[in-house]
Design a protein around this nucleic acid. Structure first.
Length: 880
RNA sequence: GGAGGUGUAGCUCAGUUGGUUAGAGCGCACGGUUCACAUCCGUGAGGUCGCGGGUUCGAGUCCCACCUUCUCCA
């Protein structure tokens, strides 16, 4: 088995072949197994027309890291992938293409041809995002890939619709919905984004029919006055009591409308009198139904004034506003225009200002459904990570209005409701209805609308596993384990999955909801197409590899918080992958091909630096495992980075070099190789969930057991490899080396100038001849001696942990400088000791703090005292 | 108006259950290429943890008020 890695790390060469191999070997394709615990994730399905952006990249990385960790831990691990048909987004996209390429609208094609065209588009481009997710290294089970409009998932949608209808939880109602005039469809509350906008209050006079005066009203949307059917005042508002019951004449229109009293009106707001437009305002609609007012629709789904608008009919709503204001002014009805900012609803897909319009839509009655969805989060059956998002969820769930689920689109699940043209009967059925069950007429037509995209997404955790069929997958893998998604779709998606999971399955859809933030640009702006500030994850994969991208996304990222993504971050990540690659390359250059087993030398053959690195490694195993189990990925990754770079590369590899290069000590050489290969392999396994490609490639080259790192066991803590004493002794050596380097640099000693080093210490296990090579290699020592005690005024004195070190650099020694340096050190040590003494003499601290904390303070004091004694003794030798 | 977040080194951010002398990356300064890596190595400077109270033996961490800034909802 020849071991070699190319001279420079080239992710492009290794990533695709490895991914292919993993898929070919079915590592990601589990089967239900009653003897094992399952771990399931369903992917938040990306839009089928979409392209991978940083948000997906973060989402997939988080999921894949957890999935790979659980798989290595031995869980029967399933990650279900798939895509969403994304009603509005996809329809808009295809319509645009149709317009651009053929100059046609969807109406020119007709419903059937148009939806055929969307399916064609889906076949052609739907796989694009899937292959991009694969490039991230995502270990999804592609044999179980789903699409929200698959046959089975569509059947699930129908079944739920019918079931809700039969339970009285789905109804067709005439009420105000937010309509996007650009998309020409109704939207749910969640799809409307409110934005503070500069606008105005137009104050308008409505004259009394009897000519005895007028009432002044204020509105932010003057064009809606065309549909006014009343003016309302508060019943207890004395200013207006005398007007209630009288009749007003609506300016420009001439309609006679009553003055009514309703508690909805706020006395102190505006003029205290409110124009009532039941057809175009949700509150007015309520008032209208309380007072039996007419609902006159004056703006249609396209934002155009209807025939009801008289001379303004046919105008765009904003053009109509201008003209109406102009006319009011001319005819003396306009009192004043007051500037103000107010929240205006926009379509979350296209940004167009939405128009509230009364229309017939299908609604899901949320009240009864929400109860259980609230309960499972309240009682902890489902928890949010971080916890604060459960508050946001609760806030939303407790203020829920009914969910408008019908959309005036062609792309989506068509509503399974049938209307009899003869008797008007509505039949809701999973099967196509061709005859009215009431009057037996054959003149029956299906509802033209489709369902909100999120309706099918709400069923995703169980519809993908086969529901409503009783499949083996559903029985074994449901409920899923965790859901990972951004906070921006808690209201759209998470809340509805919980709601529908409780309704359809009578069981939670998942146990934990892990929420992450948005990926922003270097300036903290949202990445968007219009700003052109998006960083393309594919470009980064191309240049630096998927592992570097994954590292950059997870490092320094804490749950639920937004992160900034910058070139510097990517560069740091790429440097780390390069470091890993080179460390492995170095190891493989030294580990002989004959060494194929994974055994460690017996503990009596281990040197102290071996015991030190093994101890640090075992600590890492236990900490990282704990962090991953708590889904603290950022913390785990930081520890892995520090260990690999700061501990393994900076120290162990350097400490091991003398023995690795010593071909005469064959046994020592082999032992070192065994330890190195053990720790390096372990580090690869620990890091594999985060950086799957590079770790697999290196793992394969190192001595190993098993077929692939993907399915090997995650390292387990082994207390027999913890050598506390030797680890401490090695730390003393490292401290001494650092102290020497520090002083040499401080004194501008050229690195090329080697000097003899004398170390005085009682710690003979650390400071002895066998460890001298460390000082030669790493601290510029020409040779090392270990006298019992000494003092030399012509030497530099360095006080390190449990050691005093002399370096005879007589030409560089400035006695006065030495003395003042020692005095400064003395002061510092005295300060530290005083601080600790202060603590230890505090009755409260000694009696109430945990024993371990008190003990640590005492140990620390001993260390400082030892150093202080050396400093004082040295000063004494100088006559101070 | 309601809810939630944020504020820590020049910049971007970590900081787990309250417990060493508060950390990292980048940037900066100084020095370094013979034997894995200049995408590197060594050394260093740099902090009133937003402000003020409180709880505690002990607060960056918990509580209260304020300020900054961002998001969601109305």
């Amino acid at each position: 088995m020849p071991r070699e890695l190319s001279k420079t790390y080239n992710p492009k060469e290794i990533e695709q072949p490895l991914y292919q191999e993993w898929c070919d070997k079915n590592y990601f394709t589990p089967s239900p197994d009653k003897n094992k615990e399952h771990f399931t994730i369903v992917i938040p399905p990306p839009n089928v027309t979409g392209q991978l952006h940083m948000g997906h990249a973060l989402d997939e990385t988080l999921q894949d890291t957890i999935v790979r960790f659980k798989r290595m831990q031995g869980y029967n691990t399933l990650w279900v992938p798939g895509t969403d048909h994304a009603g509005i987004a996809t329809q808009i996209k295809v319509e645009e293409t149709l317009r651009k390429e053929q100059g046609l609208s969807r109406y020119d094609l007709g419903r059937e041809k148009f939806t055929d065209m969307v399916w064609e588009w889906k076949k052609k481009y739907g796989n694009r995002i899937i292959s991009q997710i694969k490039a991230m290294g995502a270990s999804c089970d592609w044999s179980r890939e789903r699409f929200t409009m698959d046959e089975n998932l569509s059947a699930a949608v129908k079944k739920v619709f019918v079931s809700l209808y039969n339970d009285g939880l789905m109804y067709r109602g005439f009420r105000i919905s937010n309509i996007c005039p650009r998309c020409e469809t109704a939207l749910s509350d969640a799809e409307v984004e409110h934005e503070d906008t500069e606008g105005a209050f137009w104050h308008i006079r409505y004259p009394l029919e009897d000519g005895s005066g007028y009432i002044e009203v204020a509105t932010t949307r003057p064009e809606t006055m065309l549909g006014d059917t009343a003016v309302a005042v508060h019943p207890e508002d004395e200013r207006y009591t005398k007007f209630v019951g009288k009749t007003l004449v609506l300016p420009l229109v001439g309609r006679k409308i009553p003055v009514i009293a309703d508690e909805y009106v706020e006395k102190d707001f505006g003029t205290g009198a409110v124009k009532i437009t039941p057809a175009h305002d949700p509150n007015d609609f309520e008032v209208g139904s309380r007072h039996n007012l007419d609902t006159i629709i004056v703006i249609n789904n396209k934002g155009i004034i209807t025939e009801e608008g008289g001379k303004y009919a046919g105008l765009d709503r904003f053009e109509a506003r201008k003209q109406i204001v102009e006319d009011l002014k001319e005819q003396g009805y306009l009192v004043k225009i007051e500037k103000c900012t107010h929240a205006v609803g926009h379509c979350c897909r296209c940004g167009t200002v939405v128009e509230p319009i009364a229309s017939s839509q299908w609604f899901v009655k949320m009240g009864p459904l929400a109860e259980k969805a609230i309960e499972v989060v309240e009682n902890g059956t489902i928890d949010y990570i971080p916890d604060r998002f459960s508050k946001i969820y609760m806030n939303w769930m407790k203020g829920l209005r009914d969910w408008c689920v019908s959309r005036q689109l062609w792309w989506g699940h068509r509503i399974p409701a049938y209307y009899c043209d003869d008797c008007g009967e509505i039949t809701v059925s999973e099967n196509e209805v061709t005859e009215c069950p009431k009057c037996h007429s054959k003149h029956v037509h299906q509802d033209e609308d489709v369902l909100d995209t999120w309706f099918s997404s709400a069923l995703w955790p169980f519809s993908t596993l086969g529901w409503p069929n009783k499949t083996e997958d559903l029985a074994y893998y449901y409920p899923t384990s965790v859901l990972i998604t951004g906070y921006d779709i808690i209201t759209f998606w998470v809340s509805r999955m919980i709601t529908m999971g409780m309704y359809c399955m009578k069981e939670k859809p998942f146990s934990h909801v892990i929420i992450h933030g948005l990926v922003r640009d270097a300036q903290g702006r949202k990445m968007s197409k219009s700003l052109g500030n998006g960083i393309d994850p594919l470009e980064i994969i191309d240049k630096c590899g998927a592992d570097a991208l994954r590292f950059a996304l997870l490092t320094g990222n804490s749950p639920g918080n937004d992160m900034r993504f910058s070139d510097e971050k990517i560069e740091a990540a790429r440097n780390f992958t390069n470091k890993i690659w080179n460390a492995a390359r170095f190891a493989l250059m030294n580990i002989p091909d004959e060494l194929t087993d994974t055994n460690l030398p017996s503990s009596d053959k281990l040197k102290i630096e071996d015991k030190w690195i093994l101890t640090r490694y075992e600590e890492l195993v236990s900490e990282v495992t704990e962090n991953l189990e708590k889904y603290e990925l950022g913390i785990a990754l930081a520890k892995l980075y520090d260990f690999f770079w700061g501990t393994l590369c900076d120290w162990y590899l350097e400490l091991a070099k003398p023995r690795l290069f010593d071909k005469e000590d064959a046994e020592g050489n082999t032992n070192t190789c065994r330890v190195l290969s053990f720790v390096l392999r372990g580090a690869m396994e620990l890091m594999h969930p985060f950086m799957p490609f590079i770790t697999e490639k290196i793992w394969q080259q190192l001595p190993h057991k098993g077929e692939s790192i993907v399915v090997t066991d995650y390292p387990k803590f082994d207390s027999s490899l913890v050598f506390t004493k030797e680890a401490e002794q090695t730390e003393l050596i490292i401290s001494a080396i650092k102290a020497i380097r520090n002083r040499r640099t401080e004194m501008n000693v050229a690195p090329s100038r080697k000097a003899k080093v004398f170390i005085v210490s009682d710690e003979k296990n650390a400071f002895n001849d066998s460890n001298s090579p460390f000082f030669v290699k790493l601290a510029g020592a020409s040779e090392v001696e270990y006298p019992d005690d000494m003092h030399d005024e012509n030497s530099v004195l360095i006080v390190s942990d449990k050691a005093k070190i002399f370096i005879p650099l007589s030409d560089l020694v400035d006695m006065d400088a030495e003395i003042s340096r020692l005095e400064a050190e003395k002061e510092k040590l005295l300060g530290e000791i005083a601080r600790i003494d202060n603590k230890l003499s505090n009755e409260g601290f000694v009696s109430k703090a945990p024993a371990a904390v008190v003990e640590a303070e005492k140990t620390k004091r001993v260390g400082y005292k030892e150093k202080l004694d050396i400093v004082i003794a040295s000063l004494a030798k100088y006559g101070k």
